[in-house]
Amino acid sequence: MKKEDLRIVFMGTPEFAVETLQALVEHDYNVVAVVTKPDKPVGRHGSVLQAPAVKKYALEHGLPVLQPEKMKDEDFVEQLKSYNANLQVVVAFRMLPEVVWAMPEYGTFNVHAALLPQYRGAAPINWAIINGETQTGVTTFFLDHDIDTGRIIMSKPFDIPDDADVEYVYDGLMHLGAQLCLETLEQIVATNGHPATVAQSEKIEDKDLKDAPKLFKENCEINWNQKAKQVYDFVRGLCPIPGAWTNLITQDGKETLLKVYRTSKTGQSTTAAPGTICIEGKRLLVATIDEWLCFEELQLAGKKRMMARDFMNGMKELDQCHVG
Rank of each mutant, 00 (worst) to 15 (best):
T270S: 13
A212V: 02
A199S: 11
T191M: 06
Q230G: 14
P195H: 11
K282C: 04
A196Y: 10
I279Y: 04
P240D: 07
F216W: 10
C294T: 09
G243A: 13
G237C: 03
E255A: 12
Q268P: 02
D233A: 07
T266Q: 09
W224S: 02
I204A: 06
D290R: 12
D290M: 10
L215E: 01
A244F: 04
T191P: 09
E255S: 14
S269A: 09
R262H: 08
Q299M: 11
R305K: 13
I277L: 14
G302F: 10
Y261I: 02
V260W: 03
G237P: 11
Q187A: 08
K254P: 05
K210E: 03
V286R: 15
R283W: 03
A272K: 15
K210G: 00
S264N: 13
K210R: 11
E202R: 15
S264A: 14
K304W: 10
V235C: 07
H194L: 12
L209W: 10
S269R: 14
N192Q: 15
A228P: 07
K254M: 12
T256D: 14
I241R: 07
V235H: 09
L248C: 06
C278G: 04
R283G: 03
V260C: 00
G275W: 05
V189W: 03
P242H: 02
K210C: 03
Q299K: 13
A228D: 07
G275T: 03
E202H: 14
L238A: 01
E218Y: 04
T276G: 00
L284V: 05
L298I: 01
I249T: 04
G243N: 12
P195S: 12
G302D: 05
I249V: 05
E205P: 03
W292F: 15
C220K: 01
K304S: 10
T276C: 01
K303T: 07
A190Y: 11
A273I: 07
I222W: 00
Q200L: 01
A199E: 10
F295T: 00
D206A: 15
I277N: 00
M306P: 02
V260I: 10
D290P: 11
P242I: 01
P242F: 00
